[in-house]
Design a protein around this nucleic acid. Structure first.
Lengths: 165, 165
DNA sequence: TAATTATAGATAAAAATCATCTATAATCAG
DNA sequence: CTGATTATAGATGATTTTTATCTATAATTA
């Protein structure tokens, strides 16, 4: 069981977007070139970020993507669900229903959800609550503290790209 | 990203084991027959539960599996890691290292772990801590409350199997 | 209107998951 | 001691998910 790499791509890209001036969308080509992946690949994640209301897309010449919300209003959890979907980590397969007494029709299927399922959902909500507290603004700020040279270089590159459109 | 069904099989089976008298291991055949899966399939999970010290295996005639700990000392988290392994949910793929300035060797790879990774690990620890508080004893007790008829039937069946060995 | 850009869908390789079957090793009952 | 029973290990294959790319289409603005 693993988080999708898509989450990693999305989080990094959102930080790039924080650094851009307002009303100046950046194209997927530049984002993909910087990340070293194909545009079609990265664009898939951005389509999902658009649907989740995290970024806004501007079609046509000099179009691209820009943040649709303030960075402090975009949580890690928002990004995770945008990319992976809303489905919970633990999907009860209801294997009880394949158990002997059920196969012999001694019991009917019961709608009542499995206890195990409820425990797992509760556990997941703890993970969720924590990820809701961490935002893109926080990430941006702390990256600047931790790896200032790389952040500077990254900002420089995107601003140049923006200028040359 | 999804939990393995193996966790579901394991949790259910462990509850069966709670219901058995001490020093009377039950064979994988009976467990598998009750669950409606092949013995070889279920035995895989039990091998992992043995390695995790959750159950004990008794080889030879009239052998089988029995709990290696008290049910109140087996947490959901123990079972999850026994089945899924210890690997954390979020594996940082370090996609930063494929980013333009790194490809151009402007920066060397840095050993320092990614900030995103640390956030994800912290989030996971919240999930972990909750799952550590829920035990097989708790599950057993609450299943008896929620679905007493099914629990009765299940106990009856396993005790009969034990008797006829 | 033509170039640019996002969007959608088709495709495919690789990895993980699910499930079974077979072979082997250990051990206990007779 | 021997043979039946049982756990353990490994091989196998089907199915699904993940990762990644390419192509085609639709929208828009310079």
């Amino acid at each position: 069981m693993q988080f999708s790499v898509g989450v990693e791509y999305a989080l990094h890209c959102l930080v790039y977007l924080v650094n851009l001036p307002p009303d100046s969308p950046i194209g997927i080509k530049d984002l993909a070139a910087y990340q070293g992946v194909s545009d079609s690949y990265l664009s898939k994640f951005f389509t999902q970020l658009v649907k989740a209301g995290i970024v806004r897309s501007v079609p046509g010449v000099k179009g691209g993507y820009e943040l649709a919300k303030k960075p402090e209003d975009i949580s890690f959890w928002n990004v995770v669900t945008a990319i992976q979907g809303e489905a919970s980590l633990f999907q009860c397969k209801e294997i009880r229903h394949n158990t002997l007494p059920f196969r012999e029709n001694k019991f009917q299927c019961y709608s009542e959800k499995c206890l195990i399922n409820s425990v797992m959902l509760e556990a997941e909500s703890h993970l969720k609550n924590y990820l809701c507290t961490k935002t893109i603004a926080w990430l941006h700020e702390n990256l600047d503290k931790h790896i200032p040279e790389i952040q500077q270089e990254q900002k420089r590159w995107f601003k140049e790209k923006l200028y040359n459109r």
